[in-house]
Deep mutational scan, measured.
Amino acid sequence: SLSVDNKKFWATVESSEHSFEVPIYAETLDEALELAEWQYVPAGFEVTRVRPCVAP
């Protein structure tokens, strides 16, 4: 099958004044980091952490 098993990760994104967490959907932690950097670094943010979303 061609289905992709995307998992939810939380990326911590920082600017000079703010820090916030955004959801990233990817297959692996490395891919989540790449996606977060691709989305947020060009906008002037720094991705400081990516972690798996742990269900309660």
Results as ranks from 00 to 15, higher is better:
S1M: 10
S1N: 10
S1A: 11
S1Y: 08
S1R: 08
S1P: 10
L2R: 07
L2H: 12
L2K: 11
L2P: 11
L2S: 09
L2M: 10
L2Q: 10
L2T: 10
S3A: 10
S3D: 08
S3F: 08
S3G: 10
S3L: 10
S3P: 09
V4F: 11
V4E: 08
V4Q: 09
V4T: 12
V4K: 14
V4D: 07
V4S: 10
V4P: 10
V4N: 12
V4C: 15
D5S: 14
D5M: 14
D5A: 14
D5C: 15
D5G: 15
N6F: 14
N6T: 14
N6G: 10
N6A: 14
K7E: 03
K7M: 08
K7P: 09
K7I: 10
K7V: 08
K7L: 08
K8T: 07
K8A: 06
K8L: 15
K8P: 04
K8E: 05
K8V: 13
K8C: 15
K8Q: 07
F9I: 00
F9W: 14
F9E: 00
F9G: 00
F9K: 01
W10I: 12
W10M: 08
W10A: 03
A11E: 00
A11T: 02
A11S: 01
A11G: 02
T12L: 13
T12H: 06
T12V: 05
T12C: 08
T12R: 12
T12F: 07
T12Q: 05
T12N: 04
T12D: 01
T12E: 02
V13S: 01
V13A: 02
V13I: 14
E14M: 13
E14S: 13
E14L: 09
E14C: 07
S15Y: 06
S15H: 06
S16G: 13
S16T: 08
S16Q: 10
S16R: 12
S16C: 08
S16D: 08
S16K: 12
S16M: 09
E17R: 11
E17M: 11
E17I: 08
E17F: 13
E17T: 14
E17V: 09
E17W: 14
H18M: 13
H18Q: 11
H18I: 13
H18Y: 14
H18F: 15
S19L: 06
S19H: 07
S19G: 03
S19E: 05
S19I: 09
S19P: 02
S19F: 07
S19M: 07
F20T: 03
F20D: 01
F20K: 03
F20N: 01
E21L: 07
E21M: 08
E21C: 07
E21A: 05
E21F: 06
E21V: 09
E21T: 08
E21N: 07
V22T: 04
V22M: 04
V22H: 03
V22K: 01
V22G: 01
V22W: 04
P23Q: 08
P23Y: 11
P23H: 08
P23A: 14
I24K: 01
I24T: 00
I24G: 00
I24H: 00
I24S: 00
I24L: 04
Y25W: 14
Y25T: 04
Y25Q: 04
Y25K: 03
Y25H: 04
Y25L: 04
Y25V: 04
A26R: 02
A26P: 01
A26I: 02
A26C: 05
A26S: 03
A26G: 03
E27R: 15
E27C: 07
E27S: 14
E27T: 14
E27L: 13
E27A: 14
T28R: 03
T28S: 12
T28K: 03
T28W: 03
T28M: 03
T28Q: 03
T28E: 02
L29G: 03
L29A: 08
L29E: 06
L29P: 05
L29K: 04
L29T: 04
L29F: 05
L29W: 13
L29R: 05
D30L: 12
D30N: 09
D30Y: 10
D30Q: 14
D30C: 13
D30F: 09
D30S: 12
D30W: 14
E31I: 06
E31G: 05
E31V: 05
E31D: 06
E31T: 05
E31L: 11
E31F: 06
E31K: 14
E31N: 05
A32W: 03
A32S: 01
A32G: 01
A32I: 02
A32M: 02
L33D: 01
L33H: 06
L33P: 00
L33Q: 08
L33Y: 13
E34R: 15
E34K: 15
E34T: 12
E34D: 07
E34L: 14
E34Y: 14
E34M: 15
E34S: 12
L35Q: 07
L35P: 00
L35V: 07
L35M: 09
L35W: 07
L35S: 05
L35G: 02
A36M: 04
A36V: 05
A36L: 06
A36S: 03
A36E: 01
E37S: 10
E37G: 05
E37K: 15
E37C: 10
E37V: 13
W38S: 14
W38Y: 12
W38A: 15
W38V: 10
W38D: 09
W38R: 15
W38I: 13
W38H: 13
W38G: 11
W38L: 14
Q39M: 15
Q39F: 15
Q39S: 07
Q39G: 05
Q39P: 03
Q39D: 04
Y40R: 09
Y40L: 04
Y40Q: 03
Y40E: 03
Y40P: 03
Y40S: 04
Y40M: 04
V41K: 13
V41D: 04
V41F: 06
V41G: 15
V41M: 07
V41N: 13
V41L: 10
V41C: 05
V41W: 09
V41Q: 08
V41H: 11
V41T: 09
P42Y: 07
P42V: 07
P42L: 08
P42R: 11
A43E: 09
A43V: 07
A43D: 08
A43R: 13
A43P: 04
G44V: 00
G44L: 02
G44A: 02
F45N: 01
F45I: 01
F45T: 00
F45P: 00
F45H: 02
F45G: 02
E46N: 10
E46V: 15
E46Y: 12
E46Q: 14
E46R: 15
E46T: 14
V47T: 01
V47D: 02
V47F: 02
V47K: 01
V47S: 01
V47Q: 01
V47P: 02
V47W: 04
V47A: 02
T48Y: 02
T48W: 03
T48E: 02
T48P: 03
R49Y: 10
R49Q: 10
R49K: 13
R49V: 07
R49E: 07
R49I: 07
R49W: 08
R49S: 14
R49T: 07
R49M: 14
R49C: 06
V50G: 02
V50D: 00
V50N: 00
V50K: 00
V50Q: 00
V50F: 03
V50H: 01
V50I: 13
V50C: 01
R51L: 06
R51I: 08
R51C: 05
R51M: 06
R51P: 00
R51Q: 05
P52Q: 09
P52R: 08
P52Y: 13
C53K: 02
C53S: 08
C53H: 10
C53M: 06
C53N: 08
C53W: 06
C53G: 06
V54L: 10
V54C: 09
V54K: 11
V54E: 09
V54F: 12
V54Y: 11
A55C: 13
A55P: 09
A55H: 11
A55K: 09
P56L: 11
P56I: 09
P56D: 11
P56V: 10
P56N: 12
P56E: 09
P56F: 12
P56W: 11
P56C: 08
